[in-house]
Amino acid sequence: MTSEQPPTTSNPDPKVPVVRKYRRTIAALTVLLVVLLLSASGGIGWLIWEHNQREKAAQELAETPIPTVEQPVASTPDTPEVALPDNPIDFASIQQTSPDVYAWIYIPGTPINYPVVQHPNDDFFYIDHNPERNYAFEGSIFTEMANSLDFSDPITVIYGHNMHDETMFSTLHYFEDADFFAENDEMIIYTPGHILTYRIISAYQYDNRHILNSYDFSNPEVLADYQEYVRNPDSLLVNTRDVPLTSTDKIVQLSTCMTVQNWNRYLVNGVLIDDHLTN
């Protein structure tokens, strides 16, 4: 309609260019639109990047070979020393790119097959960094400085995220299933020169107390009480295997979160039963 009617009260003076007012409004709205679009695409972009990172991590996990040990050639009369097998984990080459890797954990029956790191002075670094020390949403499998690097502590706690795509330590939750727990009772930790085999003795839901800060394990009574709890925990979500413990036993506790109640933890616990030397 090419109506040439004069404007309504919104513009009493026809000589003032109304078009400028509308241009300003449109300009302002366009700026707003651009800002919104940028932040939305920023948000979406971040989500996509994060998704890709996790896919990459899952991919890497899938491609990591399961550690296997080749038994050394049997000793002959000419070589009386028993030859040691090679350590399936090539720590020297891993440490070129990931200097804080000091161990490797493999749990048969689960996809867990990861390097273990410990940062020399920042316990929280590997919550959101991968072993190559790059920012990574999924973090690493790591221990804190309170634990020694040779697993000689009575209680060692290894942490890992409960991711939603079965990477990192999320598959620890498999041990909630009684049948799975009954059929899978082993976890293996490799360190330079050692293959440490652990028998899984319990898996249970726990609270979020910092275990190493909560107890003085140098006190034999405290240690004995705690070991007894690990053997026989008081929890609504428990699987256990009857394995007696002594004061010299070394326990490794794998800790991850619960999915919704993230003030609780899920712990899978093993006791050292074998230390096999390697090269």
Binding site: F124, I127, H161, N162, N208, R209, N213, S214, C257, N262
Partner: peptide, 15 residues
């Protein structure tokens, strides 16, 4: 952090 609060002094109380 998302879904995983680290353990330590201040977070020892129920989050």
């Amino acid at each position: 952090r998302n879904g995983w609060s680290g353990d330590g002094a201040l977070t020892d109380m129920a989050a």
